[in-house]
Design a protein around this nucleic acid. Structure first.
Length: 428
RNA sequence: GGCUCCGUAGUCCAAUGGGCAAGAUAUCUGGCUGUUAACCAGGUGAUGAUCGUUCGAAUCGGUCCGGAGCCGCCA
């Protein structure tokens, strides 16, 4: 039986069997206190020399932290036990004795990261992994209820999605190939049959970005929608993100409490999200004493200033063309800008989504690519899409670990993924 | 790509301005019948690599390797 179920049933005097890993252990002569952890929680087992077989007691004394064990015993209410209940052991079987566990109190971040394969057993890491799972399920449920098809774009590609960023390259049977940094263009192709699609895939960035919000390998949740403009695109995103927040708030109360995120914080995430134009953002920043003019990009500082006082995400819309990618749609109301929007998470967490309406005019795309010296050849198939019944369409990309970081209020994005890849870490 | 910092037992760290490498924790041995990452006694175990300065280097300088933080780029 799982520990949480034993505690919940709470029938004193009944016999239960639990199994898991030793979380804490201490002994004093003829009694051993062994706190056992399983997926659902922790429970103390008291193993008395007089109550169990001799070899069971010897095993309980000898077993170090993280040994795997099975324990049967009578449930007893006891204030001295963590959680208020303990199991008075009638048998205690060590499945596998652990060597001294490297992870103890007062560890440095580098050491913990070197031992990530063991660190993920911690209760905090477990809570984050559960929240991430709930968030993914919540998103998939929302997509399904809103007529999106989940699709499976390729990871190996021949083309960069956006000119500037660095890609991981590899040899593909003698040909140059790259690890995908976005499925966007493939999703655009699929909208002509499925209309609304989404994908959850790994994305790769080869920039040496050493910041609390960058991974070189991360999970990308991307949506693409036919017959949808920039405003409709934002509506989809705010509903999606709100659905994610509310599914976590509903299903992961205990895990949120364990990592110190208030459920009420997530309940404040409700559509519609505030929309401000890039130009308005510049004015606001100037009001906050940040000297900026049209054309300057919003960096870390700027995003923090815009969002640190907020409770819910905001959209910043209509960025200058020089700051964004060639495939975005012209904004006819202000031709200096594109029809695009970034979603910034509150409390200073910053950008979690980048999205836009896509340019459908073949000639405009060619012209921009030539201006920006982007080679046309790898993009032939993408440009082709404009020749066969192109329709208004929009899409977005959400950084899953960035959302996990915000939802869980984590200091660093590497704690939002079990085995983080950063410029200096690819092990374990 | 730019700037800054740090490498001492398994781990966390100390060592005034160049002079016996200290402590904690883990582990091991012994003790303890109610612990709360227990307590008491004892044992094992360390200066990232290399070149140099010096009577003498954890400490000063150079090079290399590894890691951390901030910015840019982005999700």
């Amino acid at each position: 039986m799982h520990i949480a179920d034993v505690a919940r049933s709470g029938r004193e005097g009944s016999e239960y069997s639990i199994r898991g890993w030793i979380y804490r252990t201490r002994s004093s002569g003829s009694i051993v206190f062994s706190v056992i952890r399983d997926e659902t929680g922790i429970m103390q087992c008291t193993v008395k020399k007089s109550d169990v077989a001799q070899e069971d007691f010897a095993g309980a004394q000898k077993a170090l932290i993280e040994s795997s064990v099975e324990c049967s015993g009578l449930l007893k209410k006891d204030e001295r036990a963590p959680g208020g209940f303990e199991l008075r052991a009638t048998s205690f079987h060590v499945v596998s004795f652990a060597e001294p566990f490297p992870i103890t109190a007062n560890q440095s971040e580098p050491f913990l990261l070197d031992n990530r394969h063991l660190w993920i057993r911690s209760r905090e890491q477990t809570a984050v992994m559960k929240i991430k799972e709930t968030l993914l399920q919540g998103a998939r449920t929302w997509f399904r209820e809103n007529d999106f098809f989940e699709v499976t774009p390729p990871i190996l590609t021949t083309n960069a999605c956006e000119g500037g960023t660095t890609l991981f390259s590899l040899k593909y049977f003698g040909q140059d190939a790259y690890l995908s940094q976005s499925a966007q263009m493939y999703l655009e192709a699929m909208t002509a049959s499925l209309e609304k699609v989404f994908a959850v895939t790994p994305s790769f960035r080869a920039e040496k970005s050493r910041t609390p919000r960058h991974l070189t390998e991360y999970w990308h949740m991307e949506g693409e929608e036919a017959w949808v403009g920039n405003e409709g695109n934002m509506k989809i995103q705010e509903e999606l993100v709100s659905a994610i927040a509310s599914s976590v708030a509903k299903e992961r109360k205990d895990d949120l409490a364990l990592i110190g995120r208030k459920v009420d914080d997530l309940k404040a995430v409700e559509p519609p999200f505030e929309r401000i134009t890039y130009e308005r953002a510049i004015e606001l920043l100037n009001g906050k004493g940040k000297e900026m003019s049209f054309g300057d990009d919003l960096g870390t500082d700027e995003e923090r200033l815009l969002t640190e006082e907020l409770a819910a995400p905001i959209f910043v819309t209509n960025f200058p063309k020089s700051l964004k990618a060639f495939y975005m749609k012209d904004n006819e109301d202000d031709l200096r800008t594109y029809k695009c929007a970034d979603m910034l998470a509150p409390e200073g967490f910053g950008e979690i989504i980048g999205g836009s309406e896509r340019e459908t005019d073949y000639g405009k795309l060619i012209r921009r690519m030539e201006e920006q010296k982007i080679p046309l050849e790898p993009y032939r198939w993408y440009l082709d899409l404009r020749k066969y019944g192109s329709v208004q369409h929009s899409g977005f990309g959400l950084g899953i670990e960035r959302v996990v970081r915000w939802i869980c209020k984590l200091e660093h994005i590497r704690d939002a993924t079990p085995f983080p890849r950063t410029p200096s870490r690819i092990y374990p």
